[in-house]
Write a protein that binds this DNA or RNA. Sequence first.
DNA 1: ATCTTTGTTCCATGACGCGGAACAGTGCGG
DNA 2: CCGCACTGTTCCGCGTCATGGAACAAAGAT
Lengths: 241, 241
Amino acid sequence: MLEKSALILNSFLPDGGPYRLSELVARTGLSKPTAHRLTADLTRLGWLERTGAHYRLGAKLFELGALVPRRRDLRETALPFLQDLFEATHEIVHLGVREGLDVVYLERIHGHNAIWLPSRIGGSLPLTCTGVGKALLAFSDAELTERVLSQPLPRLTPYTITDPEQLRTSLEQTQVSGLAYEEQEAAKGVSCIAAPVFVAGTAVAALSVAVPRARFRPAQLAPAVRTAALGLSRALRGGTR
Amino acid sequence: MLEKSALILNSFLPDGGPYRLSELVARTGLSKPTAHRLTADLTRLGWLERTGAHYRLGAKLFELGALVPRRRDLRETALPFLQDLFEATHEIVHLGVREGLDVVYLERIHGHNAIWLPSRIGGSLPLTCTGVGKALLAFSDAELTERVLSQPLPRLTPYTITDPEQLRTSLEQTQVSGLAYEEQEAAKGVSCIAAPVFVAGTAVAALSVAVPRARFRPAQLAPAVRTAALGLSRALRGGTR
DNA sequence: ATCTTTGTTCCATGACGCGGAACAGTGCGG
DNA sequence: CCGCACTGTTCCGCGTCATGGAACAAAGAT
């Protein structure tokens, strides 16, 4: 019952629908009457919304999701630093954390005419081909790095690094510089520079700036990203101090 | 089963816990074994998280909540305008929509040393004592206004307007000016100016700037808020045009 | 050390979730 | 205009699994 409801709701990942009843049946493997009854129940609870034949995730989930402490608290204290970074660069700014072998984005702010990127708030991407992901991976347990490098590296663009050794040297470079670079590995034509956020010696998050390749100027961006990451690290350590 | 799970999750509103099992039992009215079993199930699904004796809302809800189309789409197209408004003012910027007799906040951005406000992303406040709420109410059906005015107006501060006639004239003023003012009605020491966002003649959202009373300069803020609201209106109407 | 509160396990009962099947509504193509 | 295919909805008998009282264990409190 609960598990079947979770099947339905999870079938909206990663892009949120909308889906018709028969599509949900196909995606979940539930029987038609069961899916029908459950979608009706979920709609009454506000977890789904129905317009005509189309089901979408419901507003109640938005309210609950915004309260999730592990996400909300970090996002809240990070926001001023993300704003600083945006104001300094006027490029797309990300905040992300690690979840298993993926990065989950907690925040993503941008201005007008923002270029397309696969990153979404609440969405996940591989650690291996994103700026935020590489910053997190470079400062995680060596054990995790080995696990990631030992399996095939997912490819998002023709420029995605899929050779483990090449990725390893890239990670080693960020370990010495404290900055992760990513060039067209997640989206064609866009490069990215990221820095980890440390609390008690472990990288708990990372933030990044994504820039169209044409106007990618690492020398300008690096100090801004590093400054924001250090500021956030300090804020997380010391409370409001 | 589903309903009881919803009882548990909803009992985390409005501030997200954490709660112990016995607190959840008290908040939901469920029996102890049932609550125990359901929290275990919800934890397996990632809808709750447990650290020691404390339950919190889980990361899966954050992922699902971020996908809710009715919230995500509006937030996404509004963000650049909210950034403009923040950059112009460096004060707390809100985006909200109406949900019943409340306003629900979709976005809330701020810088360092932000003052305290009761508004939270995903949280709701009365339409009657918030800038965003008054902007929405002033441009809704007269029927809704009458319904709101006919019942006792909730009070958040000593300055909250609780006299229906006083609120009515305030709403009439915003109808002619296109701007809603709120002075210490939601939080002591903070004033707010808001403007509605129109699509096809109806106010679908509103955005606002909240400012410490000491440096509240309406003449500076009004054009910025109005400009952002008009820009967002146009963007919602015309797509990317 | 005793009492109180909280968390966990067990189990007999029966409520209700389940899905096959049959029906109704919708849209498409001939 | 009619039939066909598909989707959505209702029905209902079966059997599963959720339910909560009770008893037990663990953790604080006095």
